[in-house]
Structure formats: C-alpha cells, structure tokens
C-alpha cells in the first residue's frame, strides 16, 4: 500500500510570454502512493492545472518545466523524450479534463475515440477494441452501450460525455488517473454521479487518482490526502481529516469558510476571500497570500515561510506556525466541518 506511484520534487513550471516569465508553478513537492486518491485544491490561477499538465508533459508552447523532478513508478519522466511519453500517456497516466462539452472530438464517434486509445496501447484488432470500448461504456454506466458506441459526442449529454471521457481514460487501466476539475462544468446531481463513478472505478481497478478542483466539497468525500495550492506553491498538505478539522493555513481556512453548507441556516452569509491572486510574472517575495491574509504580519511580505510539520502527513507553509509568532486566535472555519466517513 505504501508503494510510491508518483513523486514530484521541487517542480517549477513557467510560461515564457512576451510580457515576461509567468511562474505558474514555483517549486512544489508531493507524493502519491498506489491506490491513493489525492486532491489538489486551489482557486483559478493557483497552478493546479499546470501541475497536472506538467506531469503529463503536455505543456504547450510557451510553457516549460523549468526545473525539478517527477518520478513516476520510480523513473524520472522530466527528461523523457516525447516518444517515450507517448507510451505513458493514455496508457499508464491518463487524464480527464474539465469541460466534457469540448473535450471530445465532434467529428468522430464515441466508440472511435475510445477504440483509438485501446488500439494505440494494447494493439488489439478493431473488432476486439470495439468490444472493449463497449465494455468500458458499460463500466462507466452508459445505458445500452452497444448502440451508444456509434453515437457522436453531440448525441451525448454533458454527464454522459464525462463518462465517455472516463471510459477513454480508464480503458488501458492506467496506474495514475489525473482528473482536472472533472465535475466543474456539470450540474450537482451529475457531479455526484461522476464522483461516485470515480470512487467505484478506483475500488475496481485500484487506480491512483489525482483530483484537481477548486471546490473543497468535491474532494471531502473521495480523497485520502489533500494538497492546497496557492500562487504556484503548496500552502498546506495533509490528510482530508487534517485539512477539514485542523487546517493550519489561513488560506485553507478561507476556503473552508467559503463552502456553502446545509447545516448553517439560511441567514448565514458565506465569507469570501477578498482580493485577487498574485501576479505570477512578478511573484511576491514573501508568502503569496500575504495581501489577502487577515492575519498577515510584517515578515510575511518579506520572506517566504518554510514548511512547518504538524505531524507525519500534515505540513503547512505559514509564519503563524513559527515558534516565535504571536499566538493568535483564528477563526478556522472548522467546527462546521462535516466529513463523510
């Protein structure tokens, strides 16, 4: 169970635009064990998607991995050639994208698009691949898959398309599945179905999953481990219990306070995190959250804090956790935390 499937070490990814170098990911590290489900949480522009594209090595010009290592099954893939990556992508690491409405090629049938990846990586004949595609559609819960396999994407609803995307991603039984905001574009009932589906598939196929989202509510249920990203850095990392019941970073607390809850009564307002994320062309010297942090101190804007280990699995990057910091009483937003267990 403790076999490491993925280990990211000090990854830095930048986009070299004409305005300057956009440092989208500024040195992040985390690791993922086999069969584990990890959530990466953060708002838009925090570097979540760039992290996932870096792992797939699918960054498009002008994006580039600047430094750092990505070990996948013990092998560093940062320096792997594109040709080698072609055998990993879709086969050992697969990905589901945010918007199912635009993520399938409109001019090929769903079946063709599933078969393509099966034929590419498993070398099955067309006939066998089609049978497998039908099996995959059945697995992801598409009714009457024998007929649906020859439908075009426009004949599928949003939820069904996301299921089809899952079928594509899982058809080669990847070791690692990266789901980049798989439910963001879907309405809540479908969200729930897709999350259930991912959970089931994880049980069945023992796939490790990285679930990227800006919605803590989505990860609560399914993830064993959560990484909170902000401004291209990991702000806090811990088990879901740590993050939901014992958040240590003010950004995590802010996120928790901004989730709508059923148990709070109607009159209660959500508390947003005010302000906007930092400009990553000129990232702040200190902690990127300083400008929006209600507890910011002088030192926060001058020096980036180091990680403080709270326990074996839980760490956070905040000056408030430093021995010499004043003991502030913080509204952690926790007491209302409910976790499905």
């Amino acid at each position: 169970m403790s076999e490491k499937i993925l280990e990211v070490k000090n990854l830095k990814t930048s986009f070299y635009t004409h305005l300057g170098e956009v440092q989208a990911v500024r040195g992040i590290s985390f690791s993922l064990n086999k069969g584990e489900v990890m959530g990466i949480v953060g708002e838009s522009g925090s570097g979540k998607s760039v992290t996932s594209l870096s792992i797939m090595k699918l960054l498009q010009y002008p994006g580039e991995i600047k430094s750092g290592d990505i070990f996948f099954k013990g092998e560093n893939i940062v320096n792997k050639k594109n040709k080698e990556m072609l055998n990993i992508r879709g086969n050992e690491i697969a990905m589901i994208f945010q918007d199912p409405m635009t993520s399938l090629n409109p001019v090929y049938t769903i079946g063709d698009q599933i078969m393509e990846v099966i034929i590419r990586h498993q070398g099955l004949s067309k006939k066998k691949a089609k049978e497998k595609a039908i099996d995959m559609l059945r697995l992801v819960g598409i009714p009457s898959p024998e007929e649906r396999v020859s439908n075009y994407p426009y004949e599928f609803s949003g939820g069904m398309r996301q299921r089809a995307m899952a079928a594509i991603a899982l058809s080669c039984e990847p070791d690692l599945l990266i789901a980049d905001e798989p439910t963001t574009a879907l309405d809540v009932t479908i969200q729930d179905q897709i999350l259930k589906l991912m959970k089931d598939l994880k049980e069945k196929l023992d796939t490790s999953i990285i679930l990227i989202t800006h919605d803590l509510g989505v990860v609560a249920d399914i993830c064993t481990k959560i990484v909170v990203m902000y401004g291209g850095l990991v702000m806090e990392e811990g088990t879901s219990k740590d993050i939901f019941y014992n958040p240590k970073h003010p950004y995590t607390m802010g996120l928790l306070k901004s989730i709508p809850r059923l148990d709070l009564g109607e009159k209660k307002r959500l508390i947003p995190i005010t302000g906007t994320p930092p400009d990553l062309i000129k990232p702040p010297m200190g902690c990127p959250f300083t400008a929006r942090c209600p507890y910011a101190m002088k030192i926060c804007s001058l020096h980036a804090p180091k990680y403080t280990k709270i326990d074996e699995n839980h760490k956070a990057m905040c000056w408030l956790l430093h021995k010499q910091s004043p003991n502030m009483k913080m509204d952690t937003g926790v007491k209302r935390g409910v976790i499905n267990e």
């Binding site: 992508r89 879709g90 086969n91 993520s103 399938l104 090629n105």
Partner: peptide, 9 residues
C-alpha cells in the same frame, strides 16, 4: 479535444 487526443498518447 486536441489536448484530449494528445493525452491519449
């Protein structure tokens, strides 16, 4: 969808 195809290897 082009990104999807690339992600399929």
């Amino acid at each position: 969808y082009i990104r999807t195809v690339r992600a399929k290897g």
